[in-house]
Design a protein around this nucleic acid. Structure first.
Length: 195
DNA sequence: GCCAGGATCGTCT
DNA sequence: GACGATCCTGGCG
């Protein structure tokens, strides 16, 4: 059974670390989430900071939906919308450890190295075939499925670090990574105890 | 291995 | 008209 919509109906700062170690499945491909970033409406780096626009409409939507947008005109980035409807907040999925459909990912990415298949927000959307057409889609229904932590991921050590690729509020330690995991995106997080 | 720079286009000013 | 929640390549050591 996948995570219910109520899982996302909390503070984005609880949802973001809790998503690390969960399994994200899209069609025939799946991976364990090893890195996330939290964005909320009081955050200058958040798209919704400037107010509600047609582009960021999805950020204000119901929890448990996908917010997909185009970055740098090239890359689709996947977010999980959190907090009650009307509150703009989302968790950016930054990196996965591939576990299913690796050959399909290799074909889509055009590379062989498993470590490079999903080690970045723009890479994993290509590997999982997540495009703008899935903006607003329900993460609790196919083709999406997000499963709770299981097996060795039951207890995962987290490190929090500054966020990446943004120019505002970069010092907020809202990036959550699985400690020591080699599939996290680069540059690597600065090791800071998160409590 | 590390760093600098280009690609590329939707969105907002 | 400028700028990104990025990725990839090429140059250099």
């Amino acid at each position: 059974m996948g995570l219910p919509a109520s899982f996302y109906d909390r503070s984005v700062h609880e949802v973001a670390p809790d998503l690390v170690g969960c399994t994200l499945r899209v069609g025939p491909t799946a991976g364990v989430i090893v890195e996330t970033e939290a964005y909320d409406v009081n955050d200058p780096a958040c798209h919704a900071y400037v107010g509600r626009t047609p582009r960021n409409e999805g950020l204000f939507g119901a929890p448990g939906r996908a917010y997909v947008y185009l970055s740098y005109g090239i890359h689709s980035l996947l977010n999980a919308v959190a907090e009650p409807e009307g509150d703009a907040a989302a968790v950016l999925i930054r990196a996965l450890e591939p576990i299913e459909g690796v050959e399909v990912m290799r074909e889509r990415r055009g590379i062989e190295k498993v470590e490079d298949l999903c080690s970045g927000p723009g890479k994993l959307t290509q590997a999982l075939d997540v495009g703008l057409d899935l903006n607003g889609a329900d993460l609790t229904h196919p083709p999406f499925e997000i499963e709770p932590r299981a097996g060795d991921w039951r207890s995962v050590d987290l490190v929090a670090g500054p966020r990446i690729g943004i120019t505002k509020a970069v010092d907020l330690p809202w990036r959550h990574s699985a400690a020591g995991n080699r599939f996290v995106s680069r540059p690597r997080p600065e090791v800071q105890p998160w409590s």
